[in-house]
């Protein structure tokens, strides 16, 4: 029996992206630079997160023309973002042939209570999380891949680190918990019991987990890899830096050789200016994208 768009092939594509870097791009030219640098996928966008942050207003799904023009020029997977809860944007992206949909807090949420029922789609979804409960809620809704939220568009890795450490420590807590406590743990973290039981038994998420939100240097990428993520999203960090080509290549290399400090030292040299960063404490609560998602 042939099964198209099964959970296996949805989670399977994320497995194939592991150890790789997924780069935000806004034009076909940037997409080619990303592919040339060794990106394992690109995220097609109208504006990168730091511009969304700077310009304000409502951020929506990109114009299909942008997404199609990027799909035309690269052979690697092309992802695209839909607003939280905006299942019609997701339907449109699926119809366009996007390879993965990011139901993303970087865009302005379209629903302030519910996320998309991702089981309804053949195209796989990736969603952001700050802790294990949030990750398992998204997986329960059908996400086939998880990423940390971090704080997008800041060039500051501290929030991604916090979210990854929180997920890992939540997982560790479950693995030593007696079985009779798991139901209460599920209730407290607001996550489906079956997924909580899975994590308790296996000591890991049932899907691939990438780092996102604030990664700006090869060292940032290697840091997240050493903390245990499966791969890296870089948003504004590449094309808002002084030398995107060199930086893109360096982040790819650092993600593969994340444990080799000597090599990381070579890779990190002479990359020009990184994107200028934002200290998180200077952001008003209303400007923090990570609070979006329920």
């Amino acid at each position: 029996m042939t099964d198209i768009g099964s959970l296996k092939v949805k989670t399977g594509l994320a497995e194939m992206l592991k150890g790789g870097v997924i780069m935000d791009v806004t034009t076909p030219e940037q997409a080619i630079i990303a592919e040339e640098a060794g990106a394992c996928a690109v995220m097609a966008l109208e504006r990168v997160p730091s511009d969304i942050r700077a310009e304000g207003g409502v951020a929506r799904m990109a114009d299909p023309t942008i997404i199609k023009s990027i799909m035309d020029v690269v052979s690697i997977p092309v992802m695209a973002k839909a607003r939280i809860g905006h299942f019609v944007e997701a339907q449109i992206l699926e119809a366009l042939g996007a390879d993965y949909i990011d139901e993303s807090e970087v865009l302005t949420p379209a629903d302030d209570a519910y996320h998309i029922n991702k089981h309804d789609f053949k195209v796989p979804f990736v969603c952001g999380c700050r802790n294990l409960g949030e990750a398992l809620r998204r997986i329960g809704e059908g996400a086939a891949m998880i990423r940390t939220k971090g704080e997008p568009g800041t060039g500051n890795v501290v929030e991604a680190v916090r979210h990854m450490r929180t997920v890992m420590s939540d997982i560790r807590a479950l693995t030593v918990m007696p079985k009779e406590e798991l139901m209460s743990a599920a209730k407290n973290m607001g996550a489906p019991y079956e997924l909580v039981a899975y994590v308790a038994e296996h000591g890991k998420l049932p899907v691939v987990n990438f780092a996102a939100g604030g990664i700006a240097t090869p060292a940032d990428a290697a840091l997240m890899m050493q903390l245990g993520v499966d791969g890296i999203f870089v948003g504004s960090g590449i094309f808002k830096s002084g030398d995107p080509k060199a930086r893109a290549k360096a982040i790819v290399l650092a993600t593969t050789h994340y444990k080799d400090a000597k090599l990381l030292a070579e890779i990190s040299a002479d990359l020009g200016q990184p994107m200028s960063g934002i200290e998180i404490s200077t952001l008003a609560e209303s400007q923090r994208m990570q609070e979006r998602g329920w």
């Binding site: 042939t2 099964d3 198209i4 768009g5 092939v9 799909m71 390879d99 796989p124």
Partner: peptide, 15 residues
């Protein structure tokens, strides 16, 4: 031939 069965929405499992 790469991506010869189509994009991700055409990915499948079979016997």
């Amino acid at each position: 031939e790469r991506n010869a069965f189509g994009r991700q929405v055409a990915s499948f499992e079979t016997d």
